[in-house]
Design a protein around this nucleic acid. Structure first.
Lengths: 213, 213
DNA sequence: GTCTATAGATGGATAGAC
DNA sequence: GTCTATCCATCTATAGAC
């Protein structure tokens, strides 16, 4: 056991493997969100990430496991803004802020939104437990806050589930259906004026519904 | 050339071939809307339609042409309700009716909505001309009607594009994200009470925004 | 960790008989 | 119009050298 150290392989920067995994996840998001799970090939993803197919399979054991890894990452980002709805906030401010963040995500992470959309539309085979467990609980908690505000007369009576779905539907539409929005209006969220219009329109819609305008 | 008639092949009911094509299109909609273009195999579609793979390829020359045929059929259904927005209607009635029809489509033809969604989310490679041509013109016409109503003071000032996108986003959400809606609420549009709630909620949202409540 | 080579399976599409 | 047989491309995943 003497003489260890000399024969050791070149040591790259620590966490280099982690960076490589991240690169693969980024590339996979790109591709999966454009052509779906079945339309993507490992080869294609590997090429975009700058490594070989075989090498990619060293980091992720199968295409499906890579896909799920990307999905989990996306879901975390996607759920994050909802946490900012707190019982002790001013309802109008909190909702304005939430809507702005959601539209911001549609602008800054449209691929994440699209991948999530593809998975849900196709039945969420690989995400079902996440939806029925953590997501359901989170929505229930936030619905409780909305009901509380309504009971205190701070916002108009309404169905909190439908309200939340409405916010999701409208804000994500500008990412998921960006192709259509652009075909019809010639504009997209990367245009700052269009972004602000979209935020304002959605805020007016929701706050109006709750008697906050 | 004498004696014709005896040797002729058994003549099936007229338009039998057409019925066969329809069966294939139905099966293809089922499958494509669940697993996407690339996730579907001709074999699978043929089996569901009750014929062989080779035979299917007799009716449709390739998988992609079959896919496009299904898409065109879907788009026609999808656009139809918008035609009912007419300048000579009463704004509140016309919008209520339009929203009810759209939610009705989400209940009765969710697969069509999902297939359309999948195609748009993935960039509408095979539908782009349809979007930039006919759809864009149709929306422009209806936006004109909304602007007219606003100019006459019959509805509040607003951006007609965003208004139309909002209606689409919310109504289609209940078809496209039905999995998520069901995971969270345990309910779906096939439940008549939930259907009516959804219609009423969307109508209130839109009519409220236009000062019609 | 990265490579070459290849196994093993699927699936789109065609040829040609009936 | 429908069938059998088959070709050929693609793609996932593994084996094994370095």
């Amino acid at each position: 056991m003497a003489g260890c150290g000399e024969a050791a392989p070149v040591r790259r920067r620590r966490r280099d493997g982690e960076a490589r995994r991240e690169a693969v996840l980024d590339a996979a998001l790109d591709i999966f969100s454009t052509v779906g799970l079945h339309g993507a090939s490992i080869d294609q993803i590997a090429e975009r990430a700058g490594l070989s197919k075989t090498n990619l399979l060293y980091y992720f054991p199968s295409k499906e496991e890579l896909y799920v890894a990307v999905l989990r990452r996306v879901l975390a980002v996607w759920l994050d803004p909802l946490h900012s709805l707190r019982a002790d906030s001013e309802p109008a401010d909190a909702l304005r802020h939430y809507i702005r963040r959601k539209v911001g995500l549609s602008r800054d992470a449209p691929q994440a939104s699209r991948l999530f959309c593809l998975e849900i539309v196709q039945g969420a085979r690989l995400l079902r437990e996440e939806l029925e467990g953590p997501l359901r609980r989170l929505v229930e908690e936030k619905a409780g806050i909305l009901r509380g505000w309504a009971a205190q007369g701070r916002i108009a009576p309404h169905d909190p589930h439908h309200l939340i779905f409405t916010i999701w539907a409208v804000t994500q539409h500008y990412a998921d259906f960006a192709t259509q929005v652009e075909a019809i209006t010639g504009r997209s969220l990367t245009d700052p004026a269009f972004f602000e219009e979209t935020v304002a329109n959605t805020q007016d819609l929701i706050l109006g519904r709750l008697g906050l305008l």
